[in-house]
Write a protein that binds this DNA or RNA. Structure first.
Lengths: 186, 186
DNA sequence: ACTCTAAAGCAAAGACGTAGCTTCTAAGTG
DNA sequence: CACTTAGAAGCTACGTCTTTGCTTTAGAGT
């Protein structure tokens, strides 16, 4: 049973904090479970029991870092909002640390939902943008269309084709998507 | 210096074979470097030196397994060819073993090119399909469009949203892509 | 306040990863 | 065809990490 507010929560917080601190201090590759445990003031076996191994722990921490910290910018119209968001998203995710977090998130238990959480964060942000546009009376595509047409291609390049990315790619994807949904009335 | 045909090649082959055999026998999670080394008849230090760690080795083996073993089916027209290929691709990649191989391939050295190799395999197959269509005089989209419009969305779902996939998704993506490229003369 | 149980601490044994040095083997050379 | 040479594999010892059984703690429910 998870006991929020109790010792478990304190330990989890201490461990996550230790990971973030040590990641910055000694670098990701030098992280080990015993090192994190020492910094967090817990015994290694506690970490092994709760997270199974270092990968799971890093995956959990990575998901936290990929959580958006604010609602997307509101620039007054759908095209600008989506473009701005996509550019920022690409910029963050394609950076070396961003890519490291994505990889870590994917590495966790495949059915543990960490990767799904990342996708949910993006979908949520897009949902906000689309809802605002709909309130303004704009013709909006569905969330799924935006994921398929903008998020997925960017992620694919980040993961499988590093070095083939720049901000104009994000703009082009958004433009193509809006052109298509404009025609079909998506 | 790599010496093809020499001892190095024999060792590499023995190690890869050992990984595949043991993967089937004891399961992926029970694989360890010493175990693989014993089966391959080499010492663990050989593996550590050549592959650095188990992840790199698994990544190499995974890429081999993701290599297409034949040219894509020729059904006589672009739409059918793409649809058939996309369905097969999704089917293979979304299966539990397929997903495991993709994850392993992504896990290798980020700049080592294993992930890029996977993408190149897909691009090559698509290139064959498009070239055949062009020879027939059909109006074809570019390879990049197919990757962005079909491969990327499928991969995104496989990695980030397991459980939201079926063959109709592949068909829909292909249909949408061809409709769009038909309009623009892709 | 008391009970009960999930979670953390502890400690020891075993497995894994690393590194220096030695040996082997095949490619290049005369 | 023998010889040289350098890259790769073998060997070994050491240190670190991981696992596991048992004990202790602390907080949730009554």
């Amino acid at each position: 049973m998870v006991r929020p507010g109790g010792r478990s929560a304190r330990v989890q917080h201490a461990v996550h904090t230790a990971v973030r601190e040590l990641e910055a201090e000694v670098g990701r590759d030098a992280l080990t479970v015993p090192l994190v445990a020492a910094r967090a003031g817990v015994t290694p076996s506690t970490i092994y029991r709760r997270w199974r191994d270092l990968q799971q722990l890093l995956s959990d921490v990575a998901v936290e870092r990929l959580r958006p910290d604010a609602a997307p910018d509101d620039r007054g119209d759908l095209a600008s909002d989506l473009e701005t968001w996509a550019e920022q998203f690409l910029d963050e995710m394609a950076s070396p640390p961003g890519r490291a977090y994505i990889r870590d998130a994917l590495l966790g238990d495949p059915d543990g939902g960490n990767a799904g959480q990342c996708s949910a964060y993006a979908a949520e942000q897009i949902g906000v943008i689309l809802a605002r546009a709909a309130e303004r009376g704009e013709n909006t595509p569905g969330i799924e269309s935006v994921i398929d047409g903008v998020v997925a291609p960017m992620m694919y390049r980040i993961l499988f084709r590093p070095g083939r990315l720049d901000a104009s790619y994000a703009r082009r994807l958004v433009a193509d998507l809006l052109a298509a949904s404009g025609r079909t009335g998506g």
